[in-house]
Computed example of a mutant assay.
Amino acid sequence: MAGRAPRATLLVSSVDHGDESLSIPVAVGRRLEALAKDDSFAPSSRAELLYAVREIARLCAHSRMEDLVGRRDYSRAELTERLLRDGYRSEVVDELVERAVEVGIVDDCRYAAAFARSKVLAGWGRLKIERELSRRGISPSDVPGWPEDFVSAGDERERALSLASRRRLTGRNDYQKLVRFLCSRGFSVGISTSVAREVLDRAEG
Protein backbone atom coordinates (compact mmCIF):
# COMPACT_ATOMS: atom_id res chain seq x y z
CA MET A 1 0.00 0.00 0.00
CA ALA A 2 1.30 3.46 -0.80
CA GLY A 3 1.99 5.87 2.04
CA ARG A 4 -0.49 8.39 3.26
CA ALA A 5 -0.85 11.71 1.49
CA PRO A 6 0.70 14.82 3.08
CA ARG A 7 -1.37 16.32 5.89
CA ALA A 8 -2.14 19.84 7.06
CA THR A 9 -2.19 20.94 10.68
CA LEU A 10 -5.02 22.94 12.24
CA LEU A 11 -4.12 24.82 15.42
CA VAL A 12 -7.06 25.21 17.82
CA SER A 13 -6.95 27.14 21.05
CA SER A 14 -9.74 27.11 23.63
CA VAL A 15 -10.15 27.70 27.37
CA ASP A 16 -11.31 24.16 28.15
CA HIS A 17 -8.89 22.24 25.92
CA GLY A 18 -5.91 24.57 25.66
CA ASP A 19 -3.81 24.50 22.50
CA GLU A 20 -4.42 21.58 20.11
CA SER A 21 -2.86 20.50 16.84
CA LEU A 22 -5.29 18.62 14.62
CA SER A 23 -4.11 16.72 11.54
CA ILE A 24 -6.44 17.23 8.57
CA PRO A 25 -6.31 16.51 4.82
CA VAL A 26 -4.50 19.17 2.80
CA ALA A 27 -7.65 19.92 0.78
CA VAL A 28 -9.52 20.67 4.00
CA GLY A 29 -6.71 22.91 5.19
CA ARG A 30 -6.80 24.87 1.95
CA ARG A 31 -10.56 25.30 2.18
CA LEU A 32 -10.27 26.52 5.78
CA GLU A 33 -7.48 28.90 4.80
CA ALA A 34 -9.66 30.40 2.10
CA LEU A 35 -12.60 30.72 4.50
CA ALA A 36 -10.40 32.37 7.12
CA LYS A 37 -10.02 35.31 4.73
CA ASP A 38 -13.79 35.72 4.71
CA ASP A 39 -15.08 37.73 7.66
CA SER A 40 -18.34 35.77 7.58
CA PHE A 41 -16.52 32.62 8.76
CA ALA A 42 -15.99 33.17 12.47
CA PRO A 43 -16.81 30.12 14.63
CA SER A 44 -17.75 31.23 18.13
CA SER A 45 -16.61 28.07 19.89
CA ARG A 46 -14.39 25.02 19.58
CA ALA A 47 -17.44 22.84 18.97
CA GLU A 48 -18.66 25.10 16.18
CA LEU A 49 -15.22 25.09 14.56
CA LEU A 50 -14.90 21.29 14.71
CA TYR A 51 -18.38 20.93 13.24
CA ALA A 52 -17.39 23.21 10.37
CA VAL A 53 -14.21 21.19 9.84
CA ARG A 54 -16.21 17.94 9.64
CA GLU A 55 -18.63 19.41 7.11
CA ILE A 56 -15.82 20.82 5.00
CA ALA A 57 -14.04 17.46 5.16
CA ARG A 58 -17.21 15.77 3.94
CA LEU A 59 -17.45 18.14 0.97
CA CYS A 60 -13.75 17.75 0.14
CA ALA A 61 -13.99 13.96 0.36
CA HIS A 62 -16.98 13.97 -1.98
CA SER A 63 -15.14 16.20 -4.43
CA ARG A 64 -12.07 13.96 -4.24
CA MET A 65 -14.18 10.87 -4.89
CA GLU A 66 -15.80 12.48 -7.94
CA ASP A 67 -12.36 13.39 -9.26
CA LEU A 68 -11.06 9.85 -8.82
CA VAL A 69 -14.00 8.00 -10.41
CA GLY A 70 -14.09 10.58 -13.19
CA ARG A 71 -10.65 9.43 -14.30
CA ARG A 72 -11.18 5.66 -14.17
CA ASP A 73 -13.26 2.91 -12.61
CA TYR A 74 -12.55 1.84 -9.04
CA SER A 75 -13.55 -1.17 -6.99
CA ARG A 76 -15.28 -0.47 -3.71
CA ALA A 77 -12.29 -1.53 -1.62
CA GLU A 78 -9.82 0.34 -3.83
CA LEU A 79 -11.78 3.60 -3.63
CA THR A 80 -12.20 3.25 0.13
CA GLU A 81 -8.48 2.70 0.58
CA ARG A 82 -7.62 5.68 -1.60
CA LEU A 83 -9.87 8.09 0.33
CA LEU A 84 -8.62 6.81 3.69
CA ARG A 85 -5.05 7.27 2.48
CA ASP A 86 -5.93 10.88 1.65
CA GLY A 87 -6.73 11.32 5.32
CA TYR A 88 -10.51 11.35 5.41
CA ARG A 89 -12.27 9.78 8.39
CA SER A 90 -13.54 6.22 7.97
CA GLU A 91 -17.16 7.07 8.76
CA VAL A 92 -17.20 9.77 6.07
CA VAL A 93 -15.50 7.50 3.55
CA ASP A 94 -17.81 4.56 4.25
CA GLU A 95 -20.88 6.77 3.83
CA LEU A 96 -19.67 8.25 0.54
CA VAL A 97 -18.58 4.94 -0.97
CA GLU A 98 -21.81 3.24 0.11
CA ARG A 99 -23.81 5.94 -1.64
CA ALA A 100 -21.62 5.62 -4.75
CA VAL A 101 -22.37 1.90 -4.83
CA GLU A 102 -26.12 2.49 -4.40
CA VAL A 103 -26.31 4.85 -7.39
CA GLY A 104 -24.03 2.70 -9.57
CA ILE A 105 -21.00 4.96 -9.71
CA VAL A 106 -19.02 2.13 -8.15
CA ASP A 107 -19.81 -1.42 -9.29
CA ASP A 108 -17.43 -4.23 -8.40
CA CYS A 109 -18.81 -6.59 -11.05
CA ARG A 110 -18.43 -4.01 -13.81
CA TYR A 111 -14.97 -3.10 -12.60
CA ALA A 112 -13.87 -6.74 -12.34
CA ALA A 113 -15.14 -7.65 -15.80
CA ALA A 114 -13.34 -4.72 -17.44
CA PHE A 115 -10.18 -5.40 -15.43
CA ALA A 116 -10.15 -9.10 -16.30
CA ARG A 117 -10.72 -8.50 -20.03
CA SER A 118 -7.94 -5.91 -20.19
CA LYS A 119 -5.47 -8.19 -18.42
CA VAL A 120 -6.32 -11.16 -20.62
CA LEU A 121 -5.51 -8.97 -23.63
CA ALA A 122 -2.29 -7.89 -21.89
CA GLY A 123 -1.21 -11.53 -21.65
CA TRP A 124 -1.89 -12.19 -17.98
CA GLY A 125 -2.71 -15.71 -16.87
CA ARG A 126 -5.81 -16.64 -14.92
CA LEU A 127 -4.05 -16.99 -11.56
CA LYS A 128 -2.50 -13.53 -11.67
CA ILE A 129 -5.82 -11.96 -12.64
CA GLU A 130 -7.51 -13.71 -9.72
CA ARG A 131 -4.80 -12.59 -7.30
CA GLU A 132 -5.10 -8.98 -8.41
CA LEU A 133 -8.89 -9.02 -8.20
CA SER A 134 -8.64 -10.38 -4.65
CA ARG A 135 -6.12 -7.67 -3.78
CA ARG A 136 -8.71 -5.13 -4.94
CA GLY A 137 -11.32 -6.60 -2.62
CA ILE A 138 -13.18 -8.68 -5.22
CA SER A 139 -13.61 -12.44 -5.01
CA PRO A 140 -13.23 -13.94 -8.51
CA SER A 141 -16.11 -16.28 -7.72
CA ASP A 142 -18.40 -13.23 -7.45
CA VAL A 143 -17.63 -12.12 -11.01
CA PRO A 144 -20.43 -13.30 -13.36
CA GLY A 145 -19.07 -15.65 -16.01
CA TRP A 146 -15.61 -16.00 -14.49
CA PRO A 147 -13.55 -17.70 -15.78
CA GLU A 148 -15.50 -19.42 -18.58
CA ASP A 149 -16.60 -16.24 -20.36
CA PHE A 150 -13.11 -14.72 -20.15
CA VAL A 151 -10.54 -17.48 -20.57
CA SER A 152 -10.55 -21.12 -21.63
CA ALA A 153 -7.87 -23.75 -21.09
CA GLY A 154 -7.02 -23.65 -24.79
CA ASP A 155 -6.82 -19.87 -24.95
CA GLU A 156 -4.76 -19.80 -21.76
CA ARG A 157 -2.20 -22.17 -23.22
CA GLU A 158 -2.06 -20.29 -26.53
CA ARG A 159 -1.43 -17.00 -24.76
CA ALA A 160 1.30 -18.60 -22.65
CA LEU A 161 2.88 -20.10 -25.77
CA SER A 162 2.81 -16.75 -27.56
CA LEU A 163 4.54 -15.04 -24.65
CA ALA A 164 7.14 -17.77 -24.15
CA SER A 165 7.95 -17.94 -27.87
CA ARG A 166 9.07 -14.31 -27.79
CA ARG A 167 11.58 -14.93 -24.98
CA ARG A 168 15.23 -15.04 -25.92
CA LEU A 169 16.86 -18.41 -25.21
CA THR A 170 20.43 -18.38 -23.94
CA GLY A 171 21.13 -22.09 -23.63
CA ARG A 172 21.53 -21.78 -19.87
CA ASN A 173 18.63 -22.91 -17.66
CA ASP A 174 16.14 -21.94 -20.39
CA TYR A 175 13.53 -24.40 -19.17
CA GLN A 176 13.59 -23.10 -15.59
CA LYS A 177 13.61 -19.47 -16.78
CA LEU A 178 10.59 -20.00 -19.04
CA VAL A 179 8.64 -21.78 -16.30
CA ARG A 180 9.39 -19.01 -13.79
CA PHE A 181 8.47 -16.33 -16.31
CA LEU A 182 5.12 -17.91 -17.17
CA CYS A 183 4.26 -18.58 -13.53
CA SER A 184 5.02 -14.95 -12.74
CA ARG A 185 2.52 -13.93 -15.42
CA GLY A 186 -0.18 -15.96 -13.71
CA PHE A 187 -0.17 -19.21 -15.68
CA SER A 188 -0.51 -22.49 -13.82
CA VAL A 189 2.50 -24.72 -13.22
CA GLY A 190 0.99 -27.33 -15.55
CA ILE A 191 0.62 -24.90 -18.45
CA SER A 192 4.00 -23.28 -17.74
CA THR A 193 5.94 -26.54 -17.77
CA SER A 194 4.12 -27.85 -20.84
CA VAL A 195 4.68 -24.66 -22.81
CA ALA A 196 8.32 -24.41 -21.76
CA ARG A 197 8.96 -27.92 -23.05
CA GLU A 198 7.22 -27.15 -26.35
CA VAL A 199 9.21 -23.95 -26.89
CA LEU A 200 12.49 -25.75 -26.25
CA ASP A 201 11.51 -28.70 -28.47
CA ARG A 202 10.77 -26.28 -31.30
CA ALA A 203 14.07 -24.51 -30.79
CA GLU A 204 15.98 -27.80 -30.86
CA GLY A 205 14.04 -29.10 -33.84
Results as ranks from 00 to 15, higher is better:
Arg167Glu: 14
Val53Leu: 02
Arg76Glu: 14
Val15Met: 03
Val97Asn: 07
Ser134Thr: 13
Ser90Ala: 10
Tyr88His: 10
Val101Ile: 12
Gly171Asn: 13
Leu50Met: 15
Ser139His: 11
Arg131His: 09
Ser118Arg: 15
Leu11Tyr: 06
Arg85Ile: 07
Ala116Asp: 03
Leu35Cys: 01
Ala8Asn: 08
Glu102His: 04
Glu81Lys: 08
Pro144Gln: 06
Arg99Thr: 09
Arg197Thr: 15
Asp38Asn: 08
Val26Asn: 01
Pro147Tyr: 07
Asp155Cys: 05
Ser165Pro: 00
Gly87Thr: 05
Gly87His: 10
Arg72Glu: 12
Val93Leu: 02
Phe181Lys: 09
Gly123Val: 01
Gly104Pro: 03
Ala196Asp: 00
Ile56Glu: 12
Glu91Tyr: 13
Ala113Tyr: 02
Tyr175Gln: 13
Val93Arg: 01
Arg58Tyr: 05
Ser184Gly: 15
Gly190Lys: 09
Arg58Phe: 04
Asp86Ala: 04
Arg82Ala: 09
Ser90Asp: 08
Asp149Asn: 14
Tyr74Gly: 08
Glu81Tyr: 14
Asp94Phe: 06
Lys177Gly: 01
Leu35Val: 01
Ile191Thr: 15
Gly123Arg: 00
Arg202Leu: 14
Phe187Arg: 00
Phe115Leu: 02
Ser139Cys: 08
Ala100His: 01
Ser139Lys: 12
Arg76Ser: 09
Ala100Glu: 03
Arg31Trp: 03
Val69Pro: 05
Arg157Val: 09
Asp142Ala: 13
Arg31Ile: 01
Ala164Leu: 02
Arg54Glu: 13
Thr170Asn: 04
Pro6Asp: 06
Ala61Tyr: 06
Pro140Phe: 09
Met65Ser: 03
Ile24Val: 15
His62Phe: 06
Cys109Asp: 15
Val143Leu: 11
Pro144Met: 09
Ala203Asn: 15
Gly137Phe: 03
Pro25His: 12
Val15Thr: 07
Ala114Asn: 10
Gly123Glu: 00
Ala113Lys: 12
Asp67Ala: 14
Trp124Asp: 01
Gly3Asn: 10
Cys183Ser: 13
Glu158Lys: 15
Ser184Tyr: 11
Ser21Asp: 13
Arg166Ile: 09
Leu127Met: 10
Arg31Ala: 15
Thr9Glu: 15
Val15Gln: 05
Gly123Ile: 00
Ser184Met: 12
Ala42Gln: 08
Ala164Val: 02
Leu49Pro: 00
Cys183His: 09
Trp146Glu: 03
Arg72Cys: 07
Asp142Trp: 04
Ser21Asn: 10
Pro6Trp: 03
Ser45Ile: 11
Glu81Trp: 12
Arg157Tyr: 08
Glu55Val: 11
Ala5Asn: 12
Arg58Ile: 01
Leu121Phe: 05
Glu55Tyr: 07
Arg185Ser: 11
Glu156Lys: 06
Gly18Pro: 06
Ile138Gly: 03
Val106Phe: 06
Gly186Cys: 00
Val103Tyr: 11
Thr170Met: 07
Leu163Ala: 11
Ser162Glu: 15
Pro147Leu: 05
Ala196Leu: 06
Glu158Asn: 13
Glu48Val: 15
Leu35Tyr: 05
Gly70Gln: 08
Glu95Lys: 13
Ser21Met: 10
Trp146Gly: 06
Ser23Asn: 06
Arg85Met: 06
Trp146His: 04
Lys177Val: 05
Ala42Leu: 10
Arg54Gly: 03
Ser188Thr: 11
Thr80Ala: 10
Gly186Glu: 00
Glu98Val: 00
Ser23Lys: 09
Ser63Val: 05
Asn173Ala: 14
Leu11Asn: 07
Ile56Asn: 07
Ala27Trp: 02
Leu49Val: 07
Glu130Thr: 05
Ala34Phe: 09
Arg54His: 11
